[in-house]
Design a protein around this nucleic acid. Structure first.
Lengths: 214, 214
DNA sequence: TAGATTGTTAATCGATTAACAATC
DNA sequence: TAGATTGTTAATCGATTAACAATC
């Protein structure tokens, strides 16, 4: 079970932040934006921004910076955000519901077409415009469709079982918000989003900062 | 505006996952757990797990592994999760509401004592057991209290303004779920949680995997 | 005992940062 | 033109991995 190793992981993770700033520049009718400016907005080093943007293939102009429209296109292209991808939310609980209503996903090409849950009170209802279907019907509904992404927000103990169903249904990518480490075939990609890890970092930062202020 | 640099950032981010596995071992009445076993569960290298656990100060026993109870205590201690910390949620929208109902936070010492919003329909109501108060009253309510954390889930355009209020109110740590890069004094720590960065990674993984399957 | 696992010290790897020539 | 900014090549830094003696 060899896991896929992605090069430039930290750079890829920074690209969405850059994109946000570049889009703001576009909204302000700027034609060029320099790596220096992007770096300033994010408290990063300009050289890091330039290196990161280089992986998208964009070519900047000395003295002016990067052409805004072309840069947005290059970043979106690199991230695969230039095309719409259908997604389903599996588990229409608190977090799943919040993600259905998260407007930014649409901007990034993620189109949530349905949600699935086992709760009879939720099945048939709409949450943030997304219809909740019976989880038991997942395979028959999704199989053969062009849904690429599953956003997995079921309770952790059900995560593996649900992931198995997703794989059988032809899902290619699972965004795993549960605590479970999922076992999936090699041609299915999984990214686990761990909210606790960010909290751990903040917690250690707070302790460090506290002890520095005597 | 020097930003705090935390050493061992990747290690700290992995600790919550370890903790989850070690807790399971405890539930199964195991007295010892080896780094090898933890590594297997998470598809990591055993040496990485040992190095990570070493920063918590725990001492293992050759052949047996780490004593489960002591290991949990050491990790929690290191993360500052051995004591309860009061937190507020600022912005009781979809995401904010979901986080109020996220049961894992309590296990990790995070106690959400109140939420704040500007929406008159929400003020006075309870969401997942948490009372929503008027955002206008934030400073007077929080000032002088022992609330350490603010979970910031307001719309991005209001983020900086709200953060300023939080700082004036004596908040020490901000968990920033908005797109805004916050400007805060040096004695306030901020961690920005960027859901888009995880999605970017998954998206690039999907493309890479696709192109490998011809 | 034999062998699994630890912790330490060293080697490797990859990401960040620095230096600087090219250029608009 | 002068100077800001790019892209490239090299140096540094930190994290991961390897090797291995110690040990229960």
């Amino acid at each position: 079970m060899a896991r896929l190793k992605i090069s430039f992981t930290p750079s890829i993770r920074r690209l969405p932040s850059y994109l946000h700033i570049i889009r703001n520049a576009q909204r302000n009718s700027q034609f060029y934006i320099s790596g220096t400016v992007i770096a300033q907005e994010l408290n990063l080093e300009p050289i890091q921004v330039r290196k990161d943007l280089a992986i998208t293939g964009i070519i900047g102009k000395p003295k002016k910076g990067y052409p805004v429209d072309a840069l947005i296109a290059a970043v979106e292209r690199y991230l695969g955000w230039d095309e719409m991808h259908d997604a389903i939310v599996v588990g229409a609980g608190n977090l799943g519901s919040a993600l259905m209503g998260y407007p930014e996903f649409r901007i990034h090409g993620l189109h949530i077409v349905a949600a699935f849950d086992t709760d009879p009170d939720k099945i048939g209802k709409k949450i943030h415009g997304v219809t909740v279907l019976n989880l038991a019907d997942l395979e028959s509904t999704i199989r053969g469709s062009k849904v690429d992404y599953a956003i997995l927000t079921v309770p952790s103990p059900q995560a593996q079982e649900t992931a198995d169903t997703l794989v059988r249904s032809g899902i290619r990518a699972i965004w795993n918000f549960t605590n479970a480490k999922l076992k999936v075939p090699d041609d299915v990609v999984v990214h686990r989003e761990d909210l606790s890890s960010g909290y751990a970092l903040l917690s250690v930062m707070l302790q460090t900062r506290k002890s520095q202020t005597p």
